[in-house]
Structures are given as structure tokens and as C-alpha cells.
Write a protein that binds this DNA or RNA. Structure first.
Lengths: 337, 337
DNA sequence: TGTTAGCACTCTCATGTGTTGAGTGCTAAC
DNA sequence: GTTAGCACTCAACACATGAGAGTGCTAACA
């Protein structure tokens, strides 16, 4: 594509991102490219429309960039490299809350992202496929109930209630815990599952406890979408001019409740540090006029998760990118403290 | 108030609840009280307006019930006793999900309520002032970190990460746990706090662990609003005709994010089984056209929490009441299984 | 041959103007 | 005390009209 067309397209995207209203040739001529006349720009715009980069809501409105245009724009941005932004401090300080569990880090990251950008944000927990058990312990709760706590080497903690035989007291439970810990420590969750299946009858502990471990490790393994994905700032959607109608906004909000779908979309970053699904690319019907920006963060021992933002296709991609990258870096730092 | 006025007022409230549009004398005459002429009803409505039960958006619109009218209506309903509703089955089955922790019960209750009623719902965790510690245990996580788990007699479980001295191994931690459990079991959280302050130097365990217990017990005690109150189904608000403008809806949604305020409103049920804050009564500016219905649920040993619904003042109070009471009963049953 | 000025044309949006209909209040009759 | 009737009010809707923004096309220009 010729350079001039590209410059005009860029101007259109910039203006549309800023104003959310269709942009006409005269606006471009005056605000962005005064060395050209509006007529020239009109001609170029006509070409760009034919090429699929622009569309007109109606014949006498200005032009609106298509997903294809955003795609080009974003690819250009990514190729150019992401600019360092002045927001760094803001991002960093937003994270400086007291945190203990991994879940809390993740949650506060999502919250900070949403507040900073005024978009909806999400954070995906690190993938846990290769988690190894470090320790497990039973904590007596009542006569026949105990809390089973599993700690993995990544420091991820999960717990569940299990029924235990009434004749087991605290010391007995501790003994069982210790034995099981020794047995399983260093093994992956999958290994534990197969090992447990083999035990079957000749179990070294309370059968109900074994069932509990089984349940919990499968649960940790194929962790449900609800736990993996945290979404924040969905209310911000109501501030977008494209979602002023409550009905439309509601549709989108309900769609975001379906974490399964979103999870499928953002789970795979295709090895990229940054990825954007623009408009219909994201494949979720209700989100066809939304873009989803996804960034990867890393976490000790090569575990990876993703963070991202959801907004209208008309997003200030440049600043979105730098914020996301910043957030990802800060998370890296905190998680590998 | 004369019986006829009351009947007319009731008809107006019913109609407005159903249609959300101002209701005129003729509608009442035809749909509700055909034995009276519209002129008669007009006269009565005029009286009712003077008495503060009705208001007119503009001179030639119908009338709209005021908060005072809803208050009267609700008080009448409550005096009459709450009707058993046919929804019982729906409510009960909605709760029949697998549950383990108290938190899960509470969360699923809120979710079920929101889905059933299509309003926004909330559940307040049981008040924990008189909680007694049943057991506490340290679970080693990494070299210098442990998870401190506190179990109370109500079966409520809380945990937090604490730093521990590096020379303590699993057995040492268990020994400390056991000692501390014996020391504190049966005591209330407040007692633990004062006891810990006395220990100061001559501690029977790792000082960092004691600090952790201290932190966690204060935290459990003056539990933050975030943890105490669960809100669900806020998206449903976008379905209310009175919140079709995205801006208005956004205001309300943000207001609901401030759990502190809502908590103050619903914490105290003034000893009533059911309580409704109608319109401005709730004291939250953004919620001046919302009603908040609150029901109490009980839980072993006299601990009490509340569940409730948030909707427009124009709510079908009758069915709201029976749903709430049902939910509260089901929660009682589950929690004292 | 690419660029530009000019012009006719289109379509939205805001504004103004009747018109309709729902609803009221008042009065007089029953 | 209740009702019928009537004049009046006001929002809502449809419709026309004009302004403004924007386009495409053509012809002139460098």
C-alpha cells in the first residue's frame, strides 16, 4: 500500500479512536494532513473503501475503519515495537498492595488494569499442567470433616473439605498427611491421579481421604473456567459510547459471564508476547464489535498466564499495549520476588 | 384510611409494578374496580395525592406511587403474613449444588436468588463476633512460608500466609500448631487477641506465627466488607425499564461496588425477619429509586446473616417476600445439616 | 497525469408544528 | 356521595423543513 494511503488510514483510525464518530475527508485534511486537499483525500478514501479498510454507515456520513484497518494498524504498531509509557509509575504503585496468595496477585492485577484503563480487564491464572505436589495436609474441622490442603511447588494452594472416618483424631490425620506427602511429593497431579487409581483397595490412608485427594487434584488439573479467569471492570463498558443502549450493554455483560468462551479465546497466545483479537476475529457473537488485547506474563519455572483488556474495536491500541506490557512486567517481578 | 382509598391505592401499586408506566383513573376503573367510575377514582386519587401517596410526573400523566405508598403496601403485606409460593421447588433445587465451605453456600445462595428473581441479590456472611476457635494449623508451603489455617466452631475456615523461621520443619510446625490449638481452642477471637498481646516476649511458639494468628484473627473479626458481602446478578439491573440509560445504570452499578455502604444498610435487620428499605429510605443517593429487601437467616448457635434483593422501588413485593423467606429457610436447612 | 476547485446530490440530525390521546379537574345533575 | 360531561393540559408521535456534513463527479490546472 502506498505511503500516502497508509498515512490517511492512520489519521482516520486515530480520529475515530478519539471521537467515536465517522470521520470525513475535510476533517482529515484540516486536522491531520493539511498539505492535501479534501478532494484528494476523498479519492484516496474511496480507494481505501474499495480495498476493504473503510466503510460508510450511510452515504453522506464519514468513513469508519473496518476490522481490517485496525488489524493493519495494530500490526504496524507491534512491528514498530511498543513505546515505553509514562504510566509506568501508576501501574507499579497500583500493584503495591499487600498480597499473599497467587490468587490475590492475579485479582489485584486485573483490578488495577481496569481502573487504569477504564476498560474491562481479565487475568488468566498461570497454566498448571506441570504442577508438582510439594506437600499436603489434613486439618481437622469437625468430627468427621477435615480440610485437605494441597500445596504445589509453585506455591499454589488449594483446599477442599473431605469426609474422614470419625475415629481419626488430629494426630492420626497428621500421620496420614505426612505419609501421603512423602508418597506424592515431587509428583505431578496426573501422576498422583494414576497412582491413586492403582491403590484402589490396598490404600495407605483413609479411603475417603484418597478420594478427596483424587477429586482435588483432578479439580486443580482441569480447573474450571470460573477459577482460572478473573474479569474486572465490566461496568466500564457502560461508559463506551457504543454501548449506550442498556440492552446492547447487557448482552455483552452476560456474554462476559460465560468465562468458558472467553477462556478459550485468550488461553492461547500463539507464542506472542502481545496479541489482539479485533472485532469479529474473536469469534464471540456478542463481542463482534469488541477487541480483546492479550499479553502474556511469565512466572517462576516457565509457567505462563495471560492478562488482557476488553474494549470497543475503537481502542487506543498504542497506550493499551504499553499498559499491558507494563502490567505483565510488574506481575513477573512480584511473582518471582 | 378508608377502605376504598386503600383498595384504589393497592390497585395503582399493582398496576405500576406490572407496567412501570404512570397509571390513570380509567385504567383502574376498567381493570381493577369496575364497580366504580373513573371520575370517582379520580377524586380519590386526588385525595391520595394530597395525602402524599401518589405523585404525578406531569399534569396530564397518570399517577405514580410514592415511597410512602410502597411502605404502606409492604407493611400491609407483612402484617398479612407471607404467602407460601409455588416457587419453593425452584428455590430448593437451585440450591442443590455441591457445597463444602460456608462461603460456597453463601455464594450459591446469592446466585440462585439473582437467577430466580432477575433482580440483583446479595448475601451477608453470618456475623462472626462470637466465633470460637476450634483448631488452628500451620501447613508448610516453602522454606520460610507456611499457610496458617484457623477453623472456628461454626466450621468457618480462614487462612493466610505467614512467614516462619527457616529452621522449623513440618513436624516442628505441627507441634506448634498443636500447642497453639490447645491454648486457644474454645476461646473467642477477641480473647485470642488479648491473650496474644499478653504473651509478647515469652511466647510459646515462633513469634512470626503469633503475629500471623494475631493478624488473621483481627482480620476475621473485623472482616472487610468485600469478604462479608457477596453481590450477584447486578447485570439484571440493565433489564429494568427505569435503567435503560446506560449512564444511570452505570451510576447504580458503581454504587453497588461500594460494599461498605450497602453493608451498613443491610447489616442490621432490627430484629425483623423481613425488612424493606424503600426508595430514599436506604440513604444511598444513587439508589434513591431502588428498594432493598432484606431477610435474615439463622445458622447454628444463633449466628445470623442476611440475604436480600435489590430492585426498582416498583418491585413485586409479595413474590419477593416469599422467595426471600424460602431462600432463608433453605439456607438454614443446609447450614445446619 | 496527478491534484484541486466547484457543484449537485444525499442523508442525518435538529427543530418546529400539528395532531392525537391519555389524563385531569371542575361543574352540574342524579 | 356518585357520576357524566366537558374543557383543558401536556407528552408523544408523525411529519415537514432546513442546515450541515459529506460524498462523487467533472472539468480545469500544473
Amino acid at each position: 500500500m502506498e505511503d500516502r494511503k497508509q498515512r490517511i488510514l492512520q489519521a482516520i483510525v486515530d480520529d475515530y479512536v478519539a471521537t467515536a464518530t465517522p470521520v470525513g475527508s475535510r476533517t482529515i485534511a484540516r486536522k491531520y494532513l493539511p498539505e492535501l486537499s479534501s478532494a484528494t483525500i476523498r479519492n484516496e478514501m474511496s480507494d481505501l473503501e474499495e480495498m476493504g479498510y473503510l466503510s460508510q454507515p450511510h452515504v453522506s456520513a464519514g468513513r469508519v475503519p473496518s476490522s481490517k484497518a485496525y488489524r493493519l494498524y495494530v500490526d504496524m504498531l507491534l512491528a514498530k515495537g511498543i513505546q515505553q509509557s509514562a504510566q509506568e509509575e501508576a501501574v507499579k504503585s497500583a500493584f503495591q498492595t499487600r498480597i499473599s496468595h497467587l490468587e490475590d496477585v492475579v485479582r489485584s492485577a486485573a483490578q488495577a488494569l481496569a481502573e487504569l484503563t477504564r476498560y474491562a480487564s481479565f487475568v488468566l491464572m498461570p497454566r498448571q499442567e506441570s504442577l508438582r505436589i510439594a506437600n499436603l495436609q489434613l486439618v481437622p474441622v469437625s468430627k468427621a470433616l477435615a480440610l485437605l490442603v494441597i500445596v504445589t511447588d509453585g506455591g499454589i494452594i488449594r483446599d477442599t473439605m473431605v469426609k474422614v472416618s470419625e475415629r481419626l483424631d488430629a494426630d492420626a490425620l497428621y500421620a496420614i498427611s505426612k505419609m501421603l506427602s512423602e508418597q506424592f511429593s515431587g509428583r505431578t497431579l496426573q501422576e498422583v491421579q494414576t497412582a491413586l487409581r492403582q491403590f484402589a483397595g490396598q490404600s495407605p490412608g483413609d479411603p475417603q481421604v484418597l478420594q478427596g485427594i483424587m477429586d482435588l487434584s483432578t479439580q486443580m488439573d482441569s480447573q474450571n473456567a470460573e477459577d482460572q479467569l478473573t474479569i474486572c471492570g465490566t461496568h466500564n463498558i457502560l461508559g463506551f459510547p457504543e454501548y449506550q443502549e442498556a440492552d446492547k450493554a447487557r448482552q455483552l455483560l452476560y456474554a462476559l459471564d460465560d468465562k468458558e468462551a472467553l477462556l478459550n479465546l485468550v488461553r492461547d497466545t500463539r507464542g506472542e508476547e502481545l496479541l489482539v483479537h479485533i472485532g469479529p476475529e474473536n469469534g464471540i457473537e456478542e463481542m463482534r464489535s469488541c477487541s480483546v488485547a492479550v499479553a502474556e506474563y511469565r512466572f517462576s519455572r516457565g509457567q505462563r498466564g495471560t492478562i488482557g483488556l476488553i474494549g470497543p474495536t475503537r481502542m487506543p491500541y498504542q497506550s493499551i499495549f504499553s499498559t499491558l506490557r507494563m502490567a505483565s512486567q510488574v506481575m513477573n517481578d512480584i511473582l518471582s520476588n
